[in-house]
């Protein structure tokens, strides 16, 4: 666990979410969320389903645009209001700097592992075939999937697919990695291999925002934990406090229920 994230208020935030608000018609899913993440920090967001945690994560790279508020990455506003064509150009560039890993992997089934990882670098960064392959091999080696580089996603297990998905995101050299319940869809035996890769990334000081149900993993890897419920951040703090001795009753209630479910 790194300690860079302990110096909070002086440094300019790396990811800055200001007054994030999201409504679907009359239903308010995010109500005035403010969150600042420093470079190299690892933040976990926990909470019951419907709390808005995934919505918040997906707003960061504008996959589900906010209806109010701003999201900043370093000195760029991600959800800038721009005319359509300019917006498209802008968001595509920004997204290259944000890596995202999905609950259901979303690997491209018609491409091999190699194809999945090299697609974006070749198309968007103009890498040659040789350079892209080298890059892919590096990233896949990092996640331990190098020997399956010419396999198709359908031939891989869930944990293997997710590791490839992580390599695919890393190949674009992002500044921030977003994880949307990355292990929720995996069989229990396969969760550990993905957690190990995420731990490795943490050790390399990648800025990470992780939406998760895995409390023990969050505790061991993260600098900060946010508990969200019904569209607001109820409480936040370092993992030792949040998991052992939270202040809010709602946090206590959620953890009690959740841990009971995990250890019947």
């Amino acid at each position: 666990m790194n300690h860079e994230g302990d110096h909070m208020t002086d440094q300019k935030p790396f990811v800055d979410i200001r007054h994030a608000q999201k409504s679907y018609g009359v239903l308010e899913v995010l109500k005035d969320i403010n969150l600042q993440v420093q470079k190299g920090q690892i933040v976990a967001i926990i909470g019951p389903s419907g709390s808005g945690k995934s919505t918040l994560l997906r707003a960061i790279n504008d996959l589900d645009p906010l209806t109010g508020g701003e999201i900043w990455l370093e000195d760029k506003q991600i959800n800038m209001k721009l005319p359509h064509r300019q917006y498209e150009k802008h968001i595509n560039l920004v997204r290259q700097e944000i890596g995202m890993v999905f609950q259901h992997f979303n690997l491209f089934p018609h491409l091999t592992v190699r194809g999945n990882v090299t697609l974006a670098p070749k198309m968007l960064k103009g890498l040659s075939e040789a350079d892209a392959n080298k890059l892919a091999e590096e990233q896949l080696d990092k996640v331990g999937m190098l020997e399956r580089i010419d396999y198709y996603p359908s031939q891989l297990s869930g944990g293997q697919k997710q590791r490839v998905a992580i390599a695919r995101a890393l190949a674009m050299n992002p500044k921030v990695m977003l994880f949307d319940e990355a292990t929720s869809a995996l069989d229990p035996e396969l969760v550990e291999e993905v957690n190990l890769v995420m731990k490795k990334l943490a050790e390399e000081h990648m800025t990470m925002i992780i939406v998760t149900h895995e409390m023990s993993f969050a505790e061991s890897v993260c600098d900060r934990v946010l508990f969200m419920d019904q569209g607001v951040v109820v409480e936040e703090g370092p993992p030792e406090v949040m998991f052992r001795n939270p202040t809010s009753d709602r946090t206590k209630e959620f953890l009690r229920k959740h841990l009971a479910a995990q250890h019947p």
Partner: peptide
Amino acid sequence: DKGQIEAARTLGLSRMQ
């Protein structure tokens, strides 16, 4: 699957790409 488009857009690909 919608997730395919999301994954591609997340990497930075444009709609056409």
